[in-house]
Amino acid sequence: MSMLSSFLLISAGLFCIGIFIVLSKRNAIQILIGIELMINAAILNLVAFGKYDNLANSGQVFALFAIVLAAAAVAVALAIILNVYRQYKTIDPAKVERLKD
């Protein structure tokens, strides 16, 4: 078993855990954590595949960008959650269903 596949397995595991959290949790912040896990799984993949680009290290550069973007996304997401909480007095996404037909 090579190094790469163990990275990819861990990444896949992280992604699955992330998806499970996103789909099952009743708390928006926990869902946000799940999303972070999925992003991190993706970043782990970038880093793992970055090993094959020794000259420009573009995988690691992308990873850095992605981390920054994830941080920004978390900030925006938290702001949205805060606003949702103000609006609905809850952050359970199952109860925020005004988009329902």
Binding site: L23, A94, E97, L99, K100
Partner: peptide
């Protein structure tokens, strides 16, 4: 219409 539950997680699950 029945699918349009308004639940984000439901949509995500369907997508998945």
């Amino acid at each position: 219409r029945g699918f349009q539950t308004g639940r984000v997680q439901g949509y995500l699950f369907t997508m998945l």
